[in-house]
Design a binder for these strands. Structure first.
Lengths: 109, 109
DNA sequence: ATAAATTATCGTCGATGGGCGATGAAAGGT
DNA sequence: ACCTTTCATCGCCCATCGACGATAATTTAT
C-alpha cells in the first residue's frame, strides 16, 4: 500500500502549495505541546477528569512534582490548558478551543 | 466559554483514566514529527505534491540543504514519510497510514 | 503569628534540537 | 575514468528540553 510516485513537472506546477506559515506555526506549537508522553498523558487525565489538581496529576505520573509543574506550564503556554487557582491548589482543565484548533490543524493535513 | 470546574472526589473515582502508555508514546512520536514549522511545511508540500524530491523542497524552504535533509530524516524516522531512491534523487512521499495514525491519536483526545 | 499544604520557580546537570558549512557517498552522463 | 548532480552525514555551535532537589510563594488552618 504505497503512495504513488512523483508527479511530472507540469503536474507539479499545477498545484502550488499555498502559503501556510501561520498554520505551520500554530500546528507546530500545539503539536509540540503534546509531543511528549507525559504531556499527552496529562491531557488525557484532564479530559477524563480523573484529576485536575496538580497534586493528583503528580500522583499518577511517577515524576517529580517540579517536573509535572513544568509540563503543566508548557501546556499552559501553548494554550492547551488553563489553570484556575482554588485556595492553595490549582485546578487545571483543557482549553477546548485550543484542542479543537489542534485537531483542525492535524485534520487538514 | 470556560470549561467546568473540578469534579468532586467521588465523581473523579467514577472515571479512572485507562492506561495509555502506548497511545501516549505513539502520539508523542508522531506529534513531535510535525512539531516544527519546517516539518509541518514539508508535510504539506508532500501532500500537495508540489514537490517530492529533496532539492525541490529545499528550494521552497529558505533553509540549508543539510538542514532540510535533517528534517526529512526526522520525519522518516517517525514513520511519517518514506523516501524512494530514483537515480541520484530521492523521492519522498507521506506514509498515509502513519498520517492516519497521527490523526487518530489526536482525534481520540 | 505559626505551621502545614500546595504549587511555582530556581539552579544545575546531561542530553538533544536545530542551524550551518564542509565533506562523503551514490548514481548518471560524457 | 572523470565530472556533475543530488542527497546524506559529520562536526561544530548555541539554545532549549527534561529531569531533579531545594527553595520560594501563596493560601488555609490552628
Amino acid at each position: 500500500m504505497k503512495s504513488r510516485k512523483c508527479l511530472t513537472e507540469s503536474e507539479q506546477r499545477a498545484r502550488p502549495v499555498p502559503k501556510s506559515d501561520r498554520a505551520d506555526a500554530e500546528l507546530a506549537q500545539l503539536a509540540w505541546a503534546v509531543a511528549h508522553p507525559a504531556r499527552a498523558r496529562i491531557v488525557r487525565i484532564l479530559l477524563a477528569r480523573s484529576a485536575c489538581v496538580c497534586g493528583e496529576i503528580v500522583d499518577q505520573l511517577t515524576l517529580a512534582q517540579s517536573t509535572v509543574s513544568q509540563h503543566l506550564k508548557i501546556l499552559k503556554e501553548a494554550g492547551l490548558i488553563e489553570g484556575e487557582i482554588e485556595g492553595p491548589k490549582v485546578c487545571y482543565c483543557v482549553n477546548q478551543q485550543a484542542l479543537a484548533r489542534l485537531k483542525a490543524r492535524i485534520e487538514e493535513l
